[in-house]
Design a protein around this nucleic acid. Structure first.
Lengths: 343, 343
DNA sequence: TCCAGCGCCGTTACCGCTAACATAGCGCTT
DNA sequence: AAGCGCTATGTTAGCGGTAACGGCGCTGGA
């Protein structure tokens, strides 16, 4: 192993490799990118020198020169939701051997933060952007429109997208759940969810849910909202509170599985007959539920699939010659579990 | 030679803003970076033009010219572990107003993937690298040593780091748990954990745990390992399996809280007296536990704090003039919960 | 024999921005 | 009136790569 000749702390450049291997920088560049014709002897000489020096190419310079960046920006609201890591894993799986690489940004459900994160990402000129939701600030939307790269808005299809859209209809998911519950004979229905006004998908589910109830001549008997804290614990507390306040409730619809699981545990602890006396349902299909004493009714949000499809659009766009604007609506499947009465 | 007139789809550059506002590119650059003296009138003219055009600076070019990149690489094994998102949130909180931005890479506990991710990251010349664990391939370690930027290895202090290290001693954590269990009078102790050979921290905890038992003249009565699937469910299944196989067990030590929670639920479902007949303990202090019927004994791994400190080192290095090599060992606190007998 | 064609490699001109150094204009001192 | 120190702005020369093109030596068919 030879050492870099001059200042050992100076970062290595193509020139160092070129000098070490006795060929031009251009040839080194060709070898390292596997592009263009290079003889086997030269190739090996160069690779040997690069490895010996410990050369790591400078993608900044490369990207500037070639106007190509192998990064895909992924913007999501949160990491603590379990849902988003799964979407991410779908994305990276699909991107695996395309040479593209996801770069993540988190907004904490704040539109302003989203705008800032998007700006930061676009300033690195990624090859594409995947962003959760259809609701953005005007500025953010304008940036997406002018980005000049494929944009995929994910999770939600209830609205108008900038470019491509992959997701499910949360409105219809809520509606379908309402229909199922009503069909099972429940009549006094409560909703428990987060207080976050920026969680548009939870809001749309609730709207669809109410719509479904209305179609059967029903309306929500009671509601309970929370913010922050351990979701499981909050689920317990809220369940206790709402059942104390409105004892006539015979069904509880939770905006996510985590608080639903808390509610289920509370009911079981307190000897409440589920699903006889009270039925329960959540949303998301997290595999946490598999370990619960009883399986909570839920709806799968197709998270991995959404990630895959979105990545596929980004990766495929150049090849397929598509101009964009696809809308892919996935169908969530209802998993009745053990917490809705069988009719 | 000047560029072709005005292709509306051509990405904007400093020159466009400079022409639109009638000053030089340099002045525009100064305004947008808030650096150097610019008169208020000029500043406003430039900002107005930039906004009107929807200009987004090209950080690739900027980084190349200034040899400065506001990115910090963060390399972690997994996102589905709950632990890592929390570390991440500590990092981003600390980096919030330093102008630095975390960029994440996931290795899935694969050393080869770690090497690849690290290479990719370094090729973007980040200002620092935060990487989980002390165990890396030789190549990866060499890259870290030659990166020329601060490196912080996190989570674990049981070993030798490349540069700075922030974490807890998993060996001592295991040892301390063993001492507590022995002191509470348990004598037939089983271990349940993951099969992953690359999860060095879990391995070190187990080693420390065995050491603690040995100090009291004890050894593990039985062990059970799993891989993949819903951790909660696996916890149930493994608990059932190990208790069937070794009914004399009076304590179960789980390698993480999730399977511990599964075990706890199984015990409660099956009418097993916890902590009288069997004691239980996990590891991590995930807030999921707050919602369980009984609070599982666990040990907090200082996740957010680790993230904060690591980010602080990266962000502070230039200011503090430190050359690196700090080792910060945090003290995990044992939370006895309700699943260990009181003595 | 000649030259088109190919494999291989080098030269040149940038990519979009910024560090570093000029420079122009101003008010003030001496 | 010349000189000084400012502030506000412009000019020049890269940063480390890559696209595009050109050139050389060799081969083989006309």
């Amino acid at each position: 192993m030879t050492r870099p000749p001059a200042d050992p702390r100076r970062p290595l450049t193509l020139r160092d490799v070129s000098e070490a291997s006795g060929v031009s920088e251009m040839t080194v560049s060709r070898v390292l990118r596997n592009r263009g014709d290079v003889s086997d002897t030269t190739r090996e000489k160069v690779l040997g020198a690069a490895k010996a020096l410990g050369y790591v190419p400078n993608k900044i310079a490369g990207a500037l020169a070639s106007q190509r960046v192998n990064l895909v920006g992924v913007i999501i609201p949160s990491l603590s939701n379990l849902v988003f890591p799964e979407v991410l894993s779908g994305i990276s799986a699909e991107l695996e051997d395309t040479g593209l690489q996801p770069v993540m940004g988190v907004t904490n459900y704040s539109p302003a933060k989203e705008e800032a994160v998007l700006y930061e990402m676009l300033s690195w000129r990624p090859s594409g952007v995947i962003i959760a939701g259809l609701e953005h600030t005007d500025t953010a939307r304008a940036m997406l429109e002018n980005a000049g790269v494929p944009v995929v808005e994910i999770m939600d299809v209830d609205g108008v997208g900038v470019d491509s859209v992959v997701g499910i209809s949360h409105r219809r998911a809520g509606l379908q759940m309402a229909e199922t519950i009503v069909a099972a004979g429940y009549r006094h229905i409560g909703f428990l969810g987060t207080k976050m006004p920026e969680d548009h998908r939870a809001r749309k589910r609730l709207e669809g849910f109410k719509e479904g109830l209305a179609a059967a001549g029903l309306q929500l008997t009671d509601e309970e909202f929370y913010s922050g804290g351990s979701a499981l614990l909050k689920g317990r507390e809220m369940t206790e509170a709402i059942l104390k306040r409105s004892p006539q409730l015979d069904f509880l619809y939770y905006s996510n599985d985590m608080i639903g699981a808390g509610g289920l545990l509370w009911c079981l602890d307190n000897g409440i007959d589920v699903p006889g006396r009270v039925g329960l349902a959540g949303f998301n299909g997290v595999d946490l539920l598999d370990g619960l004493p009883r399986r909570l009714a839920t709806m799968d949000a197709c998270r991995r699939e959404i990630g895959r499809k979105a990545a596929e659009i980004i990766a495929g766009r150049p090849h397929s010659g598509l101009i964009g604007g696809e809308v892919i609506e996935l169908e969530p499947t209802l998993q009745p579990g053990d917490t809705i009465r069988r009719v």
